[in-house]
């Protein structure tokens, strides 16, 4: 059993839901990323999604675009991101790390080479936004050989046949994009999420995380009642943007701890 599956199994035993924060590697600067990861864990995160900066983040809203641009100012590439994971693993061998990013940096390094290096560094899952199932057969095979989970997205527009297709390939957990639009968008409709999750669970047996549009503890708690995991991205990046260097870790710790508390409270009320 790999770290992602173990994490979900342990949470389920305790009737808890996973909290999955997203940060971009190298934002606001490369020195702080590993500390930030440890901080996320100590504040109550279960899995870390680490964004690989890309020059053209087509599926991201302005907040995550800016974080990518800040990281790219420090010329953070895929191999630097792997170094950060390796560094993180010297102190934390438990918390799963999922890389999230776009296809081209992976194409540039080569599937095979990247999959091997990611495994060695201690990566547990990879979500590539612009590798949909029909284009990633070879890539998924490379990940399988290295026992890295291929994480896939599903969205409100995914058809039943699409859900079946993704279910066959997906490992670890499904990332359900709760909104049409890019990351950082507003206005979640919990009824829609509930209905869609029911539809997904008819086919999907692995845990389902919900992300996009979760901006405060209350919403995190509400979503946690429906899903197996709550993914928080843009809200954290905004906190990073708005925090002076000296306050950064404290502010993030406060934000995550608040979300953790809300999630645990809502879910124990059930």
């Amino acid at each position: 059993m790999n770290r992602i599956t173990q994490t979900f199994a342990a949470l389920q035993e305790k009737h808890k839901k996973a909290l999955i924060p997203f940060i971009t590697a190298g934002d606001p600067d490369p020195e702080i990323t590993v500390d930030l990861m440890h901080c996320l864990v100590s504040a109550g995160s279960d899995i870390i999604e680490l964004g690989v900066p890309f020059s053209d983040p087509m599926a991201d809203g302005p907040t995550i675009q800016r974080s990518s641009e800040r990281a790219l100012k420090h010329h953070i590439g895929l191999s630097d991101v792997l170094d950060m994971v390796r560094n993180f693993r010297t102190k934390d061998t438990q918390t799963p790390v999922v890389l999230m990013g776009y296809a081209n940096p992976i194409e540039a390094m080569g599937y095979q080479r990247f999959a091997v290096q990611a495994k060695t560094a201690g990566v547990d899952g990879i979500l590539t936004v612009d590798y949909p199932p029909e284009e990633c057969e070879e890539w998924v095979q490379c990940l399988e050989q290295q026992e890295i989970d291929a994480i896939f997205l599903l969205s409100p527009t995914s058809s039943v046949s699409r859900i079946t297709q993704v279910a066959k390939l997906a490992k670890g957990y499904i990332y359900y994009v709760s909104l049409k639009g890019v990351t950082g968008a507003m206005h979640l409709d919990l009824n829609n999420i509930e209905a869609m999750l029911e539809k997904l669970r008819a086919t999907i047996t692995i845990p389902i995380g919900v992300g996009f549009g979760i901006r405060d503890s209350a919403t995190a708690g509400d979503v946690a009642q429906l899903a197996d995991a709550v993914v928080i991205g843009s809200r954290i990046i905004e906190e990073i943007e708005g925090s002076p260097q000296s306050e950064l870790l404290n502010n993030i710790r406060g934000l995550i701890a608040g979300m953790r508390k809300a999630i645990d409270e809502k879910c124990s009320q059930r």
């Binding site: 890309f54 053209d56 081209n104 940096p105 194409e107 612009d130 284009e135």
Partner: peptide, 21 residues
């Protein structure tokens, strides 16, 4: 060099890290 951008695989002007130039 070949890579993936804007929804298709094609030749791209990019650096060694796969960032578009």
């Amino acid at each position: 060099k070949p890579g993936v951008l804007h929804g298709n695989r094609t030749y791209l002007i990019q650096d060694e890290h796969g960032q578009i130039i």
